[in-house]
Design a protein around this nucleic acid. Sequence first.
DNA 1: AGCGTTTGCCAACACTTGTTGGCAACAGTC
DNA 2: GACTGTTGCCAACAAGTGTTGGCAAACGCT
Lengths: 193, 193
Amino acid sequence: MTAPTHPTHPRRSDATRAAILRAARERFAADGYERATIRAIAADARIDPSMVMRYYGSKEGLFAAAAEFDLRLPDLAAVSPEQLGEVLVRHFLARWEGDETLVALLRAASTNPGATERMRSIFADQLTAAVAAFGTDPALTARRAGLVASQVLGLALTRYIVRLPPMVDMDPEELVSWIAPTLQRYLTGLSPT
Amino acid sequence: MTAPTHPTHPRRSDATRAAILRAARERFAADGYERATIRAIAADARIDPSMVMRYYGSKEGLFAAAAEFDLRLPDLAAVSPEQLGEVLVRHFLARWEGDETLVALLRAASTNPGATERMRSIFADQLTAAVAAFGTDPALTARRAGLVASQVLGLALTRYIVRLPPMVDMDPEELVSWIAPTLQRYLTGLSPT
DNA sequence: AGCGTTTGCCAACACTTGTTGGCAACAGTC
DNA sequence: GACTGTTGCCAACAAGTGTTGGCAAACGCT
């Protein structure tokens, strides 16, 4: 993260930039876009609010930087076809739990148009590409990816945002065994038409 | 809605109250809790912002009134067991499309603690009760309901909030035929443990 | 008609928000 | 050591927020 886009000289303020980004992700994840104030983020990072503006231009710019995200989906073509569902749930669960960026993005996506758009493109681009990679009927690929997204995002919503007790209490393995067959069918099941 | 709790005299301002409530639901559904301002809601309802305060006490109070919601779940004990999934998806789809209250609630649930709590209780109470009504292993009831909620809320999130193209484009019947088997298994499938 | 109550609007309050400009301290270079 | 650019903070702004109190008109009742 905060990788210099070009072989530019490392800046003396890189530590500050990173601190801002870390605080921003925490606040956005905990409070959503509008309730997370620049002042609060700056206080967490122990710097002045004006620094946030200098380094990230605006609140929108800060969010864009903090919500940079890659699903890091594995190559599904290399997975044995009957294990696709299981591999995917495991991967998503690990990704949600290990990085609060996605929670921040999901919280913000409900109210902030920019975040909505990013969420949409992440799942429309990255997930659709991964689903296309193991090649079923191209006409169905987008729909399969959309259905997978609906279950995976629903899992995240109920477990990390709404915190429905049963969804919070189940351990990852139980979730995998319940949900994997769902994704498996969405990915490889016959079109029900 | 806005039903007089007691046999009190109908008030001359009932029309205004209803207009406020209608405008509030629209704004909350479109913008979420924090971006929906009392001034904007009042403007939509063509009255002064101070009226909102007089009739609903506070913004939180207004939201609480606007987000009053009943899932109106059918009696699942009266449904033939192999059709549970299908009946449920149909019911939820109709409920989402016909009433923007749930969309308002879902949008707000990501950022507003009160809305989160209400969402949680709606699905924890109403849905769990419906699932319990056709009586499987009580130890699994809450988990089954939670899983159903995860898929149903994921459907709503991707279709009405994030607006993932494939989820928006599919017509209700196709969604039903894809998703019904998922709910069916969550409701009646064997515990995978 | 005269009464108290209800409905509505206006103006203002106290506060928070994102954002800006200026100014001191510091680093590194010639 | 002087010069240039960077890093940081302070103070302030303009705009928008939820919320409040008071006042005029309309209403419903006797």
